[in-house]
Design a protein around this nucleic acid. Structure first.
Lengths: 111, 111
DNA sequence: GCATAGTACCTCGCCTGTCAAGGTATTTCG
DNA sequence: CGAAATACCTTGACAGGCGAGGTACTATGC
């Protein structure tokens, strides 16, 4: 069963930053990669992806450059900036807190 | 540091359903309770809360009734319906999947 | 040669959920 | 009496996801 990315709203950017922190990539590939890693569990829609790229680049968290494609369609590659890495590590910390929070709020059987 | 409820978008309803599954409650109390349980980690804003109540009641997942207040301001209590409980359990399962997914996508250092 | 599928990019506009801001009415306490 | 707390509620702005649509090139099969 595929989860909607809406559930992960707020972590789209984090996912992208993380993936890019492991190596530059481009939209199409990143989309496939995410679907693959999550074994179909999360499909990040193209519109979502490209919106996020604009947002992240606008905030200086990633930067982009055109790949020199001898063959195949042109690709716009993205790379994380130092600011992006900082943000990523804060986001991951944040995620730990969020997990614990939700555990308290929806998993626990208290008192 | 307080997390925005926006980060948990998609789980607001789940949190409410869970809390109500432990006993009927009303808006004001639920808000305080959530802030308390999460030790200030999550403040669910009133506007968000009441919007969610409308949504959940409209979907038949909760129902409401006026408490008979001998003293104090009138309170509208909410109770989970059987459909609400079903939804809750599906949501919690979903949450487990989401956690694992995000672990793969943002925590892991793969290959 | 041509159609089809795949790679790869992108935008527009709708929808949904959050929340700041504002409002009401009652009670409690100094 | 006045302030703070309890308790409810709505409106409108804003942001993010994504369905739908579009472009351009390449590779494959018939």
């Amino acid at each position: 069963m595929a989860l909607s990315a809406d559930i992960l709203r707020g972590y789209t950017d984090t996912i992208i930053l993380k993936r890019l922190s492991l190596g530059d990539s481009y939209g199409y590939e990143l989309g496939k990669q995410i679907g693959c890693i999550s074994q179909g569990g999360l499909e990040m829609k193209e519109a979502t992806l490209y919106t996020a790229f604009r947002r992240l680049e606008g905030s200086g968290l990633i930067r982009s450059y055109w790949g020199d494609a001898q063959s195949g369609a042109r690709r716009r590659y993205y790379a994380v900036t130092p600011e992006g890495l900082e943000r990523l590590s804060r986001d991951v910390e944040n995620w730990q807190e969020t997990k614990q929070l939700l555990a308290k709020l929806i998993e626990e059987e208290p008192e």
